[in-house]
């Protein structure tokens, strides 16, 4: 089993986000980047499949801000066997179509049996890379997957619908699968092991082809969402806030 995990390095939404001077995207100098949270699930699922069915896991991503090495070293420390990055004279934002095109070019040459990606990412304005990879590579795609097992050239996947309903599919391999959640929470990689990977691992590099077209989905304006209302913020320390919440609930007959 040759398993490839395609990942995205995305702005961290944990921090306050600033908009750039042009007003069309984030001020990328002021934001930290992190691995897409669903890609962590995809990496975990890939390692679980490898542990169950054997094989090799390669993790690959576009090095959008030239800080992907740490992410790749962490993936290796978690059980991936190889890691690769797509490099060039790059700067964010790089849309999903472009990243998917580059990833497809690199992944096509790796002759994978199974390609996993996170089901979505916070910067997927022009769509998710999983279905795009499938389209570029002419492979079947199933997303929103929370369970995956492989035998005899077929993957059995569980796809989530609303209300806790799941559909089971059999998918001919090779295929692309968009992972919503791995069957187990992503494992922890000890810092010492990540450091060791940083010293010893070879990261393969692919050159980004700057001649691929973009998504045709240019942002003309970005702003914080205009909301219909805003919560009334309760002032005071925790004690006072707790007191006020209880008061409000009692007034409304909710306690």
């Amino acid at each position: 089993m040759n398993i490839v995990v395609a990942i995205k390095h995305v702005p961290s939404t944990a921090d306050e986000l600033e908009i750039n001077d042009e007003g069309v995207n984030l001020d990328f100098d002021e934001v930290d980047f992190t691995i897409n949270e669903f890609d962590e699930q995809a990496i975990e699922q890939a390692v679980l499949v490898k542990e169950a069915s054997g094989g090799e896991v390669t993790v690959i991503g576009v090095d959008v801000i030239e800080e992907l090495d740490g992410v790749l070293h962490t993936a290796l420390a978690k059980g991936a066997d190889k890691a690769a990055k797509i490099v060039g004279d790059l700067e964010p934002p790089i849309d999903s179509h472009t990243q998917a095109r580059w990833l497809a070019d690199a992944i096509g040459g790796l002759t994978p049996d199974l390609v996993l990606t996170g089901v979505q990412a916070v910067d997927d304005l022009d769509g998710q890379i999983g279905p795009m990879l499938a389209a570029y590579l002419d492979l079947p795609y199933v997303g929103v997957v929370t369970g995956l097992s492989v035998s005899d050239g077929t993957a059995t996947v569980h796809k989530e619908y609303a209300g806790g309903v799941m559909a089971e599919f059999e998918v001919n391999l090779p295929a692309v699968v968009g992972v919503q959640a791995a069957e187990k929470p992503p494992r922890y990689a000890p810092i010492s092991k990540i450091r060791q990977m940083a010293k010893s691992a070879d990261l393969e590099e692919y050159e980004a082809d700057e001649n691929v077209g973009d998504s045709g989905c240019e942002i003309r304006k970005m702003a914080k969402p205009v909301s219909a209302g805003h919560a009334e913020m309760l002032e005071g320390d925790a004690e006072e806030v707790a007191e006020k919440i209880i008061e409000i609930l009692e007034e409304r007959g909710l306690l």
Binding site: V122, D124, G216, E218, R220, A223, K224, P225
Partner: peptide
């Protein structure tokens, strides 16, 4: 579209 975890609204005119 609401992106970046719902923290931003992006307005686009698809080509």
């Amino acid at each position: 579209a609401q992106i970046y975890g719902g923290k931003m609204a992006a307005e686009c005119v698809p080509a």
